[in-house]
Amino acid sequence: MRLSTVILPIHRWAEGQKIWRRAEELGFHTAYTYDHLTWRSFRDGPWFGAIPTLTAAASVTHRMRLGTLVTSPNFRHPVTLAKELMSLDDISGGRFTLGIGAGGGGFDATALGQTAWTPKERADRFAEFVPLLDRLLTERAVTVSGTHYSAVEARSVPGCVQRPRLPFAVAATGPRGMRLAAEHGQAWVTTGDPAIFETGTPEESREALRGQLGRLAKVCADSGRDPEEMDRVLLTGFTPDRGAPLESLDAFVDFAGHHFALGFTEIVIHAPIPDSPFAADPVVFERIATEALAQLRT
């Protein structure tokens, strides 16, 4: 069982570095951040770049893993991204995990002046993006001519500190994305079933997650992969429970117990942000970080 956190990149570094240091002091397994140009209700406020933020976080932490939840093709290209990731893996001393997904609509989808891709176009691009990024991070020189992404003698030398490359945590709920997770991922990520976020119950959410885990197991079996080899990560805040699990230590232990029992190996909670969808009592948040796993193991 692992407990991790998300620290949104909304803080000037003079303040932000204290939050990243504190996350390590609290014992979180990984501290992630969102890789967006901006995001939803935070659009008109401060929002910094994920890669520079994680690079700075690597310089003020020593044990905790760092990662994105998630990077997507919306405004990234595999060749340039691979170089940045290799560098970040080196700077962090091999503590970086790439959370990666197909992306969605919203501001990122059109910020470069493009028309937002359809779900099929996103899936098609993702199906090229992940394998190419895998090759770029494991091979010394890559030449590929793809429908959406190409590389010509692209080099990633000296390669990642982590071998054969830094781990991928692939966010997916559909069959094509899950297949990419099975073939290229060291972890699989979900936020639950968005179809029941507004009107569903916690019980219905857990049943939907059980179904996703079952589909992942089948896709892994079809790919010749043991699903137990993969970490299974739940990013909280997007199930019908919303913020309820962070209302008290007991509430979180109950929530986490149900989801670890389903088969998840890592649960990710957002660091509190006042007056936002991620508002929570900082005292309760810190108690969860330091006490919840011990209670779950007894």
Rank of each mutant, 00 (worst) to 15 (best):
R155S: 05
V157R: 08
I100K: 02
H148P: 00
L132Y: 11
R155V: 02
G104M: 09
T118Q: 00
D90L: 15
A82T: 06
A127D: 04
T110I: 15
A123K: 05
L137H: 07
P131W: 01
R140Y: 10
P131Y: 03
A102I: 02
V157Y: 01
K83M: 11
W117L: 12
T138E: 08
E128Y: 01
V144N: 00
V130W: 01
A102V: 10
I100V: 15
D108E: 12
P78C: 06
S156Q: 10
A111W: 03
A151T: 08
R122E: 09
A116R: 14
L137Q: 03
Q114M: 14
A109G: 13
A127S: 14
A151P: 07
G106T: 12
S156M: 11
G105C: 08
A123I: 12
T115Q: 14
S150I: 09
L81S: 09
G103T: 13
K120T: 08
E128Q: 09
T115K: 14
R125I: 02
Q114G: 14
T138G: 03
F75Y: 15
T97L: 03
A141M: 13
A116L: 09
F126T: 04
S145Y: 12
L98W: 03
L112K: 03
H77C: 00
E128C: 01
V130K: 02
F107V: 15
T80E: 15
G93R: 13
G103W: 08
L88N: 05
A151W: 00
H77G: 04
A116Q: 14
E128F: 04
P119T: 05
F107N: 13
S150M: 03
G106Y: 08
F96P: 02
F107T: 15
G94N: 08
R140F: 07
